[in-house]
């Protein structure tokens, strides 16, 4: 089978494990591959790779920044919604306070509301993302978020809702003034 007509292909395409996919390790690998007998050239995009890696790093930072903005934004929206809810039920809150309701007793329904809002928002967001992912599955090769990420997003949504409602309550519940 391997006679004179057998030739190695003109080039070999090498796939890298994720932990090898950075400029430093790729250039080290390229240097060691260049030393192999019969290897005349190793091409790995050395001209544009550093720029591309930098761009990806920037995109990751933007991701984090956007995520933080969204988290703070969601917290503020939930805080505003809880403030409105407190205002809508101001008579109930006032009467409960006068009757000797503990802080926890007054806060609990609003915190629960914030928690549910956060949960509903994160689950809704995930469902929307899943639907988009399904629509794009024919044209773009990708996989949906792993299970741990899904759990994390739901927990983060719940925590954000809870934090938002806590913020909203802190500024809208009556407390004795001096």
């Amino acid at each position: 089978m391997m006679g004179e007509d057998f030739h190695l292909p003109a080039s070999l395409q090498i796939g890298l494990l994720p932990e090898w996919r950075n400029t430093e390790r790729i250039s080290t690998l390229a240097a060691s591959l260049s030393g192999f007998e019969g290897v005349s050239d190793v091409v790995y995009g050395e001209d544009y790779l550093p720029g591309l890696t930098g761009l990806i790093g920037t995109l990751h930072k933007l991701d984090l920044f956007a995520g933080t903005i969204i988290l703070v934004g969601v917290s503020l929206v939930v805080a505003g919604a809880v403030r409105l809810a407190v205002a809508r039920r101001s008579l109930t809150v006032e009467m409960m306070t006068i009757m000797g309701a503990s802080d926890g007793f007054v806060r609990a329904p609003f915190l629960f509301e914030g928690l549910l809002s956060g949960l509903a928002g994160s689950v809704g967001g995930l469902l929307f993302t899943y639907a988009v992912s399904q629509i794009l599955s024919g044209s773009i090769d990708h996989s949906f978020l792993p299970g741990r990420w899904i759990g994390g997003v739901i927990l983060l949504g719940a925590a954000t809702g809870l934090a938002g409602s806590w913020m909203g309550l802190s500024s809208s519940l009556p407390s004795p003034r001096k």
Binding site: L91, T92, E94, M95, T97, I98, M99, G100, A101, S102, D103, P176
Partner: peptide
């Protein structure tokens, strides 16, 4: 902080506009 609810449970309050929860 815990004294406020404890005190208020010893007090009943009636208002001119009743303040019943509608």
């Amino acid at each position: 902080p815990a004294d406020f609810p404890a005190l208020r449970r010893k007090i009943g309050v009636v208002f001119q506009d009743f303040k019943l929860l509608p």
